[in-house]
Design a binder for these strands. Structure first.
Lengths: 160, 160
DNA sequence: AAATGATAGATGTATATACATGTAAATAAA
DNA sequence: TTTATTTACATGTATATACATCTATCATTT
């Protein structure tokens, strides 16, 4: 069990060694990009020990949402956090590792449908535990603050 | 000049077609990742028209901070938002485009020092205008809210 | 039914990321 | 001063991203 002996809030200025922000909005944009990178790195490191990349984990997690139904590539794609992820190639790697199975849809032969295997469900279960562990230990925010953060992030994307 | 005819706040639930968040903290994590992707895509599209990638822009911007001083690869690296960016290879592409020049440091022959060219300064000037334009038109947040967002993001990284 | 257009996804290319390893130069230790 | 260690960077590999293009299939129009 890890024991943390100190807590410190790391200001963006220190993290990216820069003091020059023309506005709080400008700083916020860099802060969002930096925090996303920090979070992604944290999660990826934990998943690496299990044998998954962050994006492979995302695809498995999305498939679990419909399991035991199969999902087509497009439906996985629209649920990805990074929408331009190349789902067919992420699926390639998951097929190679035998975590998913791929076949052509009977209904529409253009569609490739994908489903979790037992191995896939198994590794996903471990991955979810590992990621939850990170959230509990490394991502520190009160629920009320998280709610405020969510509305700020949603409002910043007004022009989406 | 573009004219925007409507404004709508896009909730994360709609953006990634998911309704199942176990907590506000969990949602916040996905919201940070999604907003970063959204921002990155917005900026990258604008920069593409100019002939730069987001990371090439970052390196040029960092070099400008010290110009006309030269900077070594490591000093650029610690200022990158995504710290594991492979600075030598980004510099490769900037050298090929003649936006920077690379040479070996006289002081320490292990160091590769890099400096902006006139072409580099010129394209950077255009890139900064383009990115500022995005900020003005597409990133909507009041300064006070941006300040709140900054402290929330910094506090979430407590365990950095 | 044949022609046209739209859609799903496979595939190619350039760039970037994450991380391991190699090499040369600088620094510290013996 | 020779050896060992560290540092700065280059380079190799696997994966991912962004986007263009191609093919098969489905839907629509004529």
């Amino acid at each position: 069990m890890r024991v943390y002996t100190y807590i410190c809030v790391v200001k963006l200025e220190k993290a990216i060694q820069s003091e020059k922000f023309t506005s709080q909005k400008h700083k916020a944009a860099l802060n969002i990009l930096y925090t996303a990178w920090w979070l992604k790195t944290l999660i990826s490191k934990e998943l690496k020990a299990i044998g998954l990349t962050h994006e492979q984990f995302n695809v498995l997690r999305i498939l679990k949402g419909k399991h035991p139904e199969k999902m087509c590539v497009k439906d996985i794609g629209v649920r990805m956090i990074e929408r331009n992820s190349n789902v067919p190639r992420i699926v390639d790697r998951l097929v190679a590792k035998k975590f998913v199975e791929r076949s052509t849809s009977e209904m529409d032969k253009r569609e490739t449908v994908i489903t979790l295997t037992y191995d896939g469900m198994d590794i996903l279960k471990n991955a979810i535990v590992a990621v939850d562990h990170i959230f509990t230990n490394n991502v520190v925010i009160k629920e009320a603050d998280a709610e405020r953060l969510n509305s700020l992030l949603e409002s910043i994307r007004k022009r989406e």
